[in-house]
Design a protein around this nucleic acid. Structure first.
Lengths: 189, 189
DNA sequence: CGCAACTTTGATACAACTCAAAAAATGTGG
DNA sequence: CCACATTTTTTGAGTTGTATCAAAGTTGCG
């Protein structure tokens, strides 16, 4: 069901207030959704990886802009088709509602994150990334520091400083800008 | 459909990780949902008023605790009953999904709020309250300062200071602790 | 009226931001 | 493959806004 679409880096999939005709599911790659505040700052709402659904926040229109972070394969499905397919099938309705509830839970957890200190935000982010990409201890971050900063509500300088501090404390190892090994997870807590 | 239930002040309707068997709709009064962080701080997720649905964040279990802020009348409906009632009716499925999407949008807006300065958070909160309770310029806040602070991610001292400053700037008038008149909305931006 | 809970006000400390610049990585053309 | 230009990241110094700690002032209930 649906159509596979291929996108390269930094392409826009839909924008704020675009009418929402589709549901989206990632086959591979990475997506970011964001809003731009009236003062020009950008707030990244969420990152999505292989297997995740996105675009669920739409009521009639989309509430965020969705862009590729890296080359990405997205499955696009017409809302009408989904609706027709779930109608009359209670487990399917339940599953559809659940996808949106998961999204809601993520937004609420993100909320919690914004109340914490800088170090804890970065650590939580790293832990989220390992768990989301079912890695054990090594993460390959597909997004630049600016994206991380905008997701965590920090400046890139602060993100950078925290990572450096974590490395000095040998809690992590920075193999390069994108690859990070989590060493002492207990210290990361 | 469903059963009306009456609650007095500060009563718990459901708790985090309680199994989610029902959907809830407010007939009158006010509800707050919250989480307690591991350091003991409380984060209020949302306030709900007459006409609002809540408890939509539940996947299998609830992700927040729901309490009454004031005496409240809540309509409680079994999830199974709702599911049975919407199955086979596409517009109803759409409406149910929309209720959750609205909730998701609110959580995302709340996120945006946490990136702003203290004054803007308080102002946004006041504006949200007038619009949610379809008032014109006078708000009757049913919740104490601590709730406002925990909702905005500020301390009660900061909330209090901002309100005082806004009154000095004659942007608002504090009739008493709960009643506030918005005067110069342009200054409130 | 008196007490307990809530709110406001004041002084100080600190975490993250801002501005500025150096260093590293990445991409490009010879 | 190397040299250069551009982008991204890191590091440094100083500022600012909000939290913290402490105390005084209100409000409202029994």
């Amino acid at each position: 069901m649906g159509t596979q679409t291929l996108w390269s880096r930094n392409e826009k999939i839909f924008g704020v207030r675009d009418p929402a005709e589709y549901f989206y599911k990632i086959k591979s790659g990475c997506i970011r959704t964001y809003n731009v505040l009236n003062d020009g700052r950008r707030r990244i709402c969420a990152f999505y990886f292989s297997g995740d659904y996105f675009g669920m926040e739409a009521c009639k229109d989309h509430g965020v802009t969705a862009e590729t972070v890296a080359p990405t394969c997205v499955l696009v499905i017409k809302r009408k088709v989904v609706m027709a397919s779930v109608a009359g099938d209670i487990p399917k309705v339940r599953r559809l509602l659940n996808i949106t509830a998961v999204e809601l839970r993520r937004a609420q957890n993100h909320n919690l994150l914004l109340l914490k200190g800088a170090q804890e935000r970065v650590v939580d982010f790293l832990l989220e990334m390992v768990s989301r990409k079912q890695g054990q201890s090594e993460v390959d971050l597909p997004m630049p520091r600016q994206d991380i900063a905008d997701y965590l509500g920090l400046t890139i300088e602060t993100v950078s400083r925290v990572l450096t501090r974590l490395e000095s404390a040998s809690a992590i190892s920075l193999l390069n800008y994108r690859r990070i090994v989590l060493r002492d997870l207990s210290a990361l807590n």
